[in-house]
């Protein structure tokens, strides 16, 4: 009598065994075909990449033509949407709008600084020679002078102004200058503000005032440099490079060239 159960189990094992060669052949063939197809596809893809890169190269001159047209007044007021389209300059145009319309930026801050303004006015009236002397003087000295010879030295308020000057807050200075800038729109003042903001590491404000300076007078090189530096600090290195490139092409400025190289090589971060 046959042991059918055992025989069936043996048959099942046999069937599995018999399919193994076919499975291995199919799997190996599919792997081989897959590899071949992969290589074929990669071969076909490489020319398309080249085509794309070529098309990019061809496409590149278009923006340069557009940019080359307004060579001199690049940063001069343009509609915000146009500026956005350009890849090189992406300033915050809302800032400009604010400046043109309400200008709340200046107005809001001014009333708080009334007392300081007085001090600054005094400071600005002080001759530059006296300011140079300032570091040599110490704090106790003006106190002594005040006590002993008030009458004799009444004509020299210099020492008082010196003490005020040492206690100065750069932010307060900026606000003071801001007020003046509002009155006369002097690009030198806006540049001063931009530089101060840059030193205070308020790069966005530095950027804004550099832009304003440039709008007022685009020949001031420092406005370009501060603008570019601020952009770098804000992480927009590519834009900074592009702007410097244009400025260099227009002005052949050495300092701009040096900054450009520093930014490009990563020396200036």
């Amino acid at each position: 009598m046959l042991n059918i159960i055992d025989l069936e189990n043996r048959w099942k094992r046999y069937k599995i065994k018999s399919y193994i060669p076919y499975i291995t052949i199919v799997v190996s063939l599919s792997i081989i075909i897959g590899i071949i197809l992969f290589f074929i596809s990669t071969k076909h893809h490489t020319p398309t990449k080249q085509k794309i890169s070529q098309s990019k190269i061809i496409a590149k001159p278009k923006p340069t033509r557009q940019q080359s047209k307004p060579t001199t007044p690049q940063l001069k007021p343009t509609p915000p949407h146009k500026i956005k389209e350009k890849t090189l300059l992406m300033p915050s145009m809302e800032f400009l709008k604010n400046m043109q319309d309400a200008q709340p930026y200046y107005i809001d801050e001014i009333p708080k600084q009334k007392k300081i303004i007085h001090k600054k006015v005094i400071q600005q009236e002080i001759p530059t020679e006296e300011i140079l002397i300032k570091p040599k003087l110490t704090k106790p000295k003006p106190i002594q002078l005040n006590k002993n010879s008030i009458e004799t030295h009444t004509e020299k308020p210099k020492k008082i102004s010196i003490t005020i000057n040492q206690e100065r807050d750069p932010k307060k200075d900026i606000k003071e200058v801001l007020k003046r800038f509002k009155e006369n729109n002097n690009p030198a003042l806006s540049l001063f503000i931009a530089k101060n903001y840059y030193e205070l590491k308020e790069y966005k404000q530095a950027y804004n005032y550099a832009l304003i300076t440039n709008q007022l007078d685009n020949t001031i090189e420092d406005s370009w440099l501060i603008f570019a530096k601020s952009l770098v600090k804000m992480g927009q290195k590519d834009k900074a490079i592009e702007i410097l490139k244009k400025h260099i092409s227009d002005s052949n400025s050495n300092s701009a060239q040096i900054l450009y190289e520093n930014i490009r090589t990563g020396k200036f971060k």
Binding site: L2, L7, E8, R10, W11, R13, Y14, K15, K17
Partner: peptide, 16 residues
């Protein structure tokens, strides 16, 4: 066919 294969396994004609 299954039975034929089973018989072949039993008789040794298929080495399973």
């Amino acid at each position: 066919t299954k039975i034929v294969e089973m018989a072949a396994i039993h008789t040794g004609l298929i080495n399973a």
